[in-house]
């Protein structure tokens, strides 16, 4: 994944808005704790199983089963662009589109540019979930959890690359912020996916209530703040 951060590095250097670029990642590192958590285990229990404090062979068997079932079903795609951002007097954040959001404004404070990205692991997992929902609900629950973990881990991998590339350039990456967080409405997905051409290039579509399909997709903004030397 080292060369990916080089690619991102190249895009961060300019002052202008960049065109969207598309990457395919290798399988991101697996987090058992997250997979269990997304499958419905309470946080402390998931943590205890993941670090080996507690044993839960039944749960582990389910995790192994869904790993096996979903083998070859994932693609790890990320589409991203960087753009300058500003804030106007009326409290709007001016991204490539204009949006009122206090929470986003706070998240991006001090940033002059940001990385916008969409990540998806494809629709294979949705097909599997659909199948097992009708026949083995427990398996569906774990598939759901595993898929959510995969998508988040992909977003984390990309985020880490951005952070690393930004650091080399003297920027600090802010924590990523997704549509739906705080007062940033899900409806900005329209502009978000539009500017990344994500429907055509990545197959991410929006439903009536601004939900993404494939469901295991993530969109987010990573603010970049110039570090004071």
């Amino acid at each position: 994944m080292g060369n990916l951060s080089d690619l991102i590095f190249e895009d961060l250097t300019g002052e202008e808005k960049t065109v969207p670029r598309y990457l395919e990642y290798e399988e991101p590192v697996f987090s058992l704790e997250e997979a269990l958590r997304y499958s419905g285990f309470p946080m402390d229990k998931a943590k205890a199983v993941a670090c080996g404090e507690t044993e839960d062979p039944d749960a582990m068997q389910r995790i192994e089963k869904v790993k096996e079932l979903s083998k070859g079903q994932f693609i790890y795609k990320v589409g991203y662009m960087t753009s300058p951002i500003t804030f106007d007097e009326d409290g709007f954040v001016v991204l490539p589109f204009k949006q009122h959001s206090e929470a986003l404004k706070i998240n991006l404070s001090g940033c002059k540019k940001a990385v916008f990205f969409a990540a998806t692991i494809g629709s294979g997992i949705d097909r599997l979930i659909r199948r097992y929902e009708r026949t083995e609900l427990d398996t569906a629950l774990f598939l759901q959890g595993f898929g959510a973990e995969r998508a988040e881990s992909l977003a984390n991998a990309f985020n880490a690359d951005v952070k690393e590339a930004a650091k080399k350039l003297g920027f600090m990456a802010h924590p990523r912020f997704s549509p739906g967080f705080g007062d940033l409405p899900l409806s900005v997905q329209v502009e978000f996916l539009g500017m990344l051409d994500a429907t055509r290039r990545m197959g991410i579509t929006l439903g009536e209530s601004y939900l993404m399909a494939p469901s295991k997709s993530v969109t987010a903004i990573i603010g970049l703040e110039q570090e004071i030397k």
């Binding site: 419905g40 285990f41 749960a59 083995e136």
Partner: peptide, 11 residues
């Protein structure tokens, strides 16, 4: 027990 176990039992 947690949701996953409840579901396994239900299944």
């Amino acid at each position: 027990v947690y949701l996953p176990q409840l579901l396994m039992a239900a299944d």
